[in-house]
């Protein structure tokens, strides 16, 4: 890149961090809920899904950012989807080759990464407007944030639903599993509970900030 038509802001830690916390794809933006609810019935599935999505995010962001000045606006969505689908296919075969068990557990949801709005959203709103490194850093942040969210769900659902974590039994033989937690309704319950927790924390922080502000202004 020799000439930049638009002034680019430099990369800050925020470029990476916003995907993990402030713009977390699952907990804040509520994107990509289909895989979130469907495959988080165990920690290992959650990690597998999270890493697969992160890979697709990175790959598609790289390519979209690289080609951003080449792709005409009229065909950009088609281009993005083809690019994303390519990386999804790669990931699909890679998981199949690495572990049959994980592949069978994730089922059609690997292929469905292509329809995950997190990825198309990143391509459309970030990678197509930013430099390669910056897009990559942002995509990585989003991927880590997505994986983190899936991990939050997967670990809770596995602990309650099977009494294990990463396959290791936690409570001994007499534990009564909560079957509902590994069923789809469990996904909704746990997602709801996490959303509740995050918004409660946020509200508390805001209230605290408002109080501090009051305290500063009061004497003056």
């Amino acid at each position: 890149m020799t000439y930049q038509p638009r002034k680019q802001k430099p990369i800050t830690p925020d470029t990476f961090l916003r995907g993990i916390w402030r713009e977390n794809p699952v907990f804040v933006m509520l994107l990509g809920l289909c895989p979130t609810l469907a495959v988080t019935n165990s920690t290992i599935n959650a990690i597998g899904m999270g890493l697969a999505t992160t890979f697709v995010l990175l790959g598609s962001s790289l390519l979209v950012s690289l080609l951003r000045n080449l792709i005409p606006k009229q065909v950009r969505i088609a281009s993005y989807i083809v690019i994303i689908a390519t990386f999804v296919t790669i990931v699909d075969y890679a998981i199949h080759a690495l572990s049959l068990e994980l592949y069978n557990a994730l089922g059609a949801f690997i292929q469905l990464i292509v329809a995950n709005c997190v990825i198309l959203g990143r391509a459309e709103s970030y990678a197509s407007k930013n430099r390669i490194t910056k897009s990559l850093v942002n995509a990585l942040g989003m991927g880590v944030g997505f994986t983190f969210a899936l991990l939050c769900l997967g670990s809770v659902r596995e602990i309650l639903g099977s009494g294990t974590l990463l396959g290791f039994p936690l409570f001994g033989d007499s534990f009564q599993p909560w079957v509902v937690m590994i069923l789809p309704p469990g996904g909704f319950f746990v997602t709801g509970a996490w959303l509740l927790l995050f918004s409660w924390l946020q509200e508390r922080r805001q209230r605290k900030a408002a109080k501090e502000e009051e305290a500063i202004h009061a004497p003056g």
Partner: peptide, 30 residues
């Protein structure tokens, strides 16, 4: 438009073929 789409499709086809080529024997074996 055709040029760009063809370029992307070329890349997509190539990578998919490569991946299938390398993983298929492993998958069969497994």
């Amino acid at each position: 438009m055709i040029r760009v789409l063809a370029l992307i499709a070329l890349f997509a086809g190539l990578s998919v073929v490569l991946v299938v080529h390398f993983t298929d024997p492993v998958i069969r074996e497994k």
